[in-house]
Design a protein around this nucleic acid. Structure first.
Lengths: 185, 185
DNA sequence: TCTCCCATTTGCCAAATCTGCAAGAAGTCT
DNA sequence: AGACTTCTTGCAGATTTGGCAAATGGGAGA
């Protein structure tokens, strides 16, 4: 059974219900027995054109709209996480092969302690000024700048100046390298 | 069998041919046996969605386009007839229950002899001036004027003035009255 | 004309599916 | 409970299916 066909029956049923019609009513319009329509709607029999064409006519829908697979809502909506003065908005669904976040760093009064952990991080500064302490380097990234580094190197990231910094960040901690080159520098 | 379904097979075949594919090729793509596809194309078996969906995918067409009945071109294109200085453009297909013409009368130097024949005629002057001799009447119709008369009354029609007259004419000669009232006037 | 080759059609038939009826189930009022 | 309405399902005969293999058709070339 082709995948798209599984939704045909339920869709017919949904449209029928939305019109407030009973099985018998629609079956009469489309000139088929109620049992046939019942089985069709519940997927207990194959959807043939013979059956579908009269139905589409009375339901006012096209054939394609009955069989076109419904695409799940692609919008990612996950709750924002607040931690250590950061506002972390996950931009990829849970379980996604990529982990993307929009992180808003608040200005800090006190420089946080650099940390290490497994993984790689790539980031892009959307707005604000970002101070990146990475090993023996002390960098300030401004809007439009991007950076990538090995998070096993001690690092600290925070907004500098008086305004928050918005950063788009792609991060992986599962040991899979995000890029083909090794992070030697 | 629903009417629309009869064209599904031939259409599939036409599309397949237009792509220069053989039965075996398309059958392989759509994962069905050549015999099944052959029977489908020649209408010897029912067109089920199970069969059609893979085909539409490979043929690059929608389901609806396979089953939507093709409406014949509604435009009427018939050769213009020239006779007696008139240019007669039939505006209805042969065999149509109504006979409509656009007639262009050329200016005449000599008044034609009135004639009689069975039927009724309705006319509308699109442009020019039309002289209508009808029984004891001698009328000039100008743009926008309409007239209806019994063609058993002796009549002659021709353009008057220096320019041709364009007339839309509905005519019937088969004894069926075009209008409900009798043509007494 | 004959033959070869490729595309397509068709006979066959076991297996799967269809079909409507009538009975059953599930839910809703009174 | 009982009466209704809506929907589901068991059943059995009728119909359709699907792929294999053989037959057919139609060119192209010998």
């Amino acid at each position: 059974m082709i995948d798209e066909l599984k939704q045909v029956g339920p869709r017919i049923r949904a449209i029928r219900h939305s019109k407030g019609w009973t099985l018998d009513q629609l079956a009469a319009m489309a000139e088929m027995s109620p049992s046939t329509l019942s089985r069709l709607e519940s997927g207990k029999r194959q959807a043939s054109l013979e059956l579908l064409i009269p139905l589409t006519r009375h339901l006012g829908v096209g054939l394609d709209s009955l069989v076109t697979p419904s695409v799940p809502d692609p919008r990612v909506r996950r709750p924002v996480i607040r931690r250590d003065g950061m506002e972390i908005a996950p931009l990829t669904p849970e379980g996604s092969p990529v982990n993307t976040f929009k992180i808003t760093y608040q200005p800090v009064t006190e420089v946080p302690e650099p940390r290490v952990h497994d993984g790689y991080e790539w980031l892009y500064v959307i707005s604000g000024k970002l101070r990146l302490l990475l090993g023996d380097r002390d960098l300030v990234l401004t809007r439009g700048e991007a950076a990538e580094f090995d998070t096993r190197v001690p690092h600290a990231i925070f907004a500098t100046g008086s305004r928050p910094a918005q950063v788009l960040s792609i991060f992986n901690s599962d040991g899979v390298r995000m890029h083909t080159h090794t992070a030697e520098g």
